[in-house]
Amino acid sequence: MNSFTYFRTDAVDTAVRERASEPTAKFIAGGTNLLDLMKENVEHPTHLIDITRLPLTTISDNVDGGLRLGALVTNADTAYNEQVIQRYPLLSQAILAGASPQLRNMATDGGNLLQRTRCYYFYDTATPCNKREPGSGCSALNGYNRIHAILGASNHCIATHPSDMCVALAALEAEVRVTGSNGERTIPFADFHRLPGDTPNIDNTLEPGELITAIDLPARGFPEYFQYLKLRDRASYAFALVSVAAALEMEGGTITAARIALGGVAHKPWRKPEAEAALVGKPANKENFQAAAELLLAGAQGYEHNAFKIELAKRVIVRALGQAAKLEPTA
């Protein structure tokens, strides 16, 4: 960890100005990922701007009937918020599937979006990694890649995004509100994270210096038929091998709307609109879920240690949809 200077403010515009003045600065909130990366010598900010005192700590109703999560609301406070539990139980479930209570108490909602991959090679500065050091190569491609991507990867990077919360946010079609030197803007969740392509060092579409101020949840929360199902190598405190956020609207036994997002399989939460569309108007049953799973996994590519994820993902999708439709027990 290098030496750095530290600055704290309670005003959003001051924070943004401070950040603009130093290109190698970083915002810090809960620090649950950034501090680790600094200790591992992966991130080297010269200046830390502590944003924990900014007034972005509330959950409030939006005029469109949706809910606004301040960027600095903790993961724990979000998961246990009455409104979230009532209206967006999928999000609450996803958050509680991640990390540990201690981490969720520290980690913020904005920070959750910005956590970096858990790829072993990204964390080990003795090995090449295009995400950490562009142009150095991808060690995972021909290395140990059990936890790596099967969808949307490139020859430059097969890392995955590690968040659980983001998988639910993708399914719910949240929007990310950001502010920067050029003013405020809103980014649809599907456009927030990006695929690695040949610039895997860039995780998302934030412009340099932009600050996440809030996450907007649309009015439609799928509170009736939903399931976040996470598969991992132990029962808690492990990143997803595959996770599924499934949300349905149903009339009788017929699906009227469907959202499916996958975690642990790509550089971003993975959605396929055609897989969701294929379910609409169809009865909720295993055959239709299986067909959706096939569509979602179309084009999937396995590597030496993670090819099992392709079949596993399909089975998790079928199970999660079945649970969301209340056709299967959730225990």
């Binding site: 090995t127 140990y144 405190y237």
Partner: peptide, 22 residues
């Protein structure tokens, strides 16, 4: 990773030991 001859999951997030929930 035998390409590097190096243990790669060298932290307690990726070297999995049983947790309470197990």
């Amino acid at each position: 990773d035998h390409n590097f001859g190096r243990f790669m999951n060298h932290n307690l997030a990726e070297y999995h030991v049983a947790v309470n929930a197990d």
